[in-house]
Amino acid sequence: MTVDTIAGLRQVHARLKSIGPDTIPRPHELEALAEKVLACSAELGDVAVADPKELRRLLTYAVKSLRAAEKAARAHHSDPAGRPLAPVRFALKAGAADGALEGALELLDPGN
């Protein structure tokens, strides 16, 4: 089950990496990514890693950042001209989620 869970986290990480600098996905897609990270973290349970507290912290931060990116995407899509900072907020939060997932994946599968 851990292999499938790590693969799920890698899919979310790959999707975040594929988002271009001028592209903001629809909020429902970001919500789905956050739900996937939540589901994967629940499946991990008490997996044996060097620092389980750090793993939980990183996964929690990834979900929190994805939720904030979803909020920025929602603001951008509702009124792109009226919300000039929404793309910047989205980029910051999506990047934070990506970095947290990268750290979590490094803890789960060092060297890959």
Rank of each mutant, 00 (worst) to 15 (best):
R10V: 09
P80V: 10
K93A: 13
A97D: 05
L107W: 01
I24K: 03
M1Q: 12
T2P: 01
P52M: 04
S78D: 11
A91D: 11
C40F: 07
A50E: 15
R67S: 14
V37Y: 00
G111L: 06
L58P: 00
A91G: 12
D98R: 15
R26Q: 14
G8K: 04
T2Q: 12
H76G: 02
N112E: 11
E31K: 09
R15G: 09
D22A: 13
A50Q: 15
T2K: 07
P27R: 00
E106A: 12
Y61D: 13
R26F: 08
R74T: 13
A75D: 10
L108T: 09
V47C: 03
A69I: 03
K93G: 01
A14I: 05
L38I: 06
R26G: 01
R89E: 14
D109H: 11
D46H: 12
R67T: 14
A14Y: 14
A7E: 09
K36Y: 06
A7L: 08
V88A: 14
E102D: 13
H28N: 12
S18Y: 05
D4Y: 15
A104I: 03
K93T: 10
H13N: 13
V49Q: 06
I19A: 07
A34C: 08
L101M: 09
D79I: 04
R89H: 14
A50M: 12
I6Q: 01
L105T: 03
L59P: 01
T2D: 08
I19K: 02
T23D: 13
P21A: 14
E70H: 00
A32T: 09
G99K: 05
V47S: 05
R26W: 07
N112D: 08
A32F: 10
T23S: 13
H13M: 05
D4K: 09
Y61F: 11
A75N: 08
A94G: 02
F90C: 04
A34F: 02
H13Y: 14
A72K: 00
D79P: 00
L16R: 03
E102Y: 06
